[in-house]
């Protein structure tokens, strides 16, 4: 038996109401596996933010979660517009979400900052016009 459990999800880009389904599933899985509540919470919140980002900005994408007793690695890949200025995007409150999205209560400019806050390591690989790949690492061991 492999020591790493691999989960793969596709996030559909056209349905706001379903954003959060994936993080919810992963949360349930981690709880069943017996991960510490703080770890589950960090994964749930950072993944939820990422999922919303994919729906708002990138018309969906894929999420891969590698679970091992030591750490949880989340890789989110989309083929959206890319992030032109990562430094700006990392500022709390900065958002490029359009008016319609904000009307729905999203686009507060907390997505990337929250992902960074709740993860132990975050790497962003992005190219304008091609897409974005965000990798989050959350340590499971105390």
């Amino acid at each position: 038996m492999a020591e790493v459990m691999k989960l793969h999800y596709t996030v559909s880009g056209d349905d706001f109401t379903r954003a959060g389904e994936t993080s919810s599933k992963v949360k349930k899985t981690l709880n069943q596996l017996g991960f510490r509540p703080e770890v589950v919470r960090k994964v749930a919140i950072s993944m939820y933010e990422a999922e919303i980002n994919m729906v708002i900005h990138a018309n969906g994408g894929t999420i891969d979660v590698d679970i091992s007793p030591e750490e949880i690695i989340i890789v989110m890949q989309d083929t959206g517009p890319g992030i032109p200025d990562i430094e700006k995007a990392m500022q709390e409150g900065y958002s490029t979400a359009d008016h319609n999205v904000r009307e729905l209560g999203f686009g507060a400019g907390m997505g990337l900052p929250n992902m960074k806050r709740y993860s132990d390591d975050m790497q962003i690989d992005t190219e304008v016009g091609k897409g974005t790949c965000v990798k989050l690492v959350i340590k499971a061991k105390e």
């Binding site: 038996m1 020591e3 459990m5 899985t29 709880n31 069943q32 596996l33 017996g34 991960f35 509540p37 679970i67 007793p69 499971a140």
Partner: peptide, 20 residues
């Protein structure tokens, strides 16, 4: 206190095997 009654196994490796 948290009562983890939904856990599959006290050992995470074993729990992962069970979940698979």
């Amino acid at each position: 206190v948290y009562r983890p009654v939904m856990n599959l196994d006290p050992d995470i490796n074993e729990a992962m095997r069970k979940l698979n």
